[in-house]
Amino acid sequence: MAESNLDLFIRVAEKASASVLQDCDTVFAATYISEHLTGTLLLPHSPSLQRLGIQDTLAQAGVNLVTGDVRQQAAAAGGGLTGANFGIADTGTIVLESTDEATRLASTLPEQHFVLLDPGKILVDGIAAVAPLRALHQRDARNFIAYITGPSRTADIERVLTIGVHGPKQLHILLLPGISDDPLEN
């Protein structure tokens, strides 16, 4: 039997040095983040995360949240938490529509990036991803859309793969079933 999109996604994302957690719920996700986070957590606006009420759960778990002026506090933050529009199985990629600047800052500046993704929103490959990519371009006049595969990396010194150069050093993908079935939202 052919590998499912989900299994393929997990296998390839882990190979790209992402941590992938399956069958999470809100409480588990919040606990996981509080256990792994070093410093404050940037939490930009995200419809799926808002519906989950993750902000309260995180606060209960003792996470120090930054929700207001993300730009001012981004550089000092330890981590960022975002949703994801959808995943791409064959490259282990999460797609994050991040035209909103806070979402961009939360996923580029801190050392840790936590992502909540609905495992039902995983497409097979980059060609299948074109349909939602185009839909996002049709919905919004201006776009900043990120395909993120594993943490930041470089091989610029003696071709040795080294994780975590300018972007996040860790990418944690938490799979939460039932949080969103719409690839146009994150």
């Binding site: 600047e101 060609i127 201006r142 990120a146 395909y147 993120i148 595969t149």
Partner: peptide, 28 residues
């Protein structure tokens, strides 16, 4: 998408680079 599919594989043998960023217009 076809170029994105081939470019990293042929450049360094990576399935995909860590980031592919699509930017259109003057964003916030």
């Amino acid at each position: 998408a076809k170029i994105v599919q081939v470019l990293p594989k042929n450049a360094t043998g990576q399935l995909l680079t860590s980031y592919v960023t699509w930017i259109r217009g003057a964003v916030p």
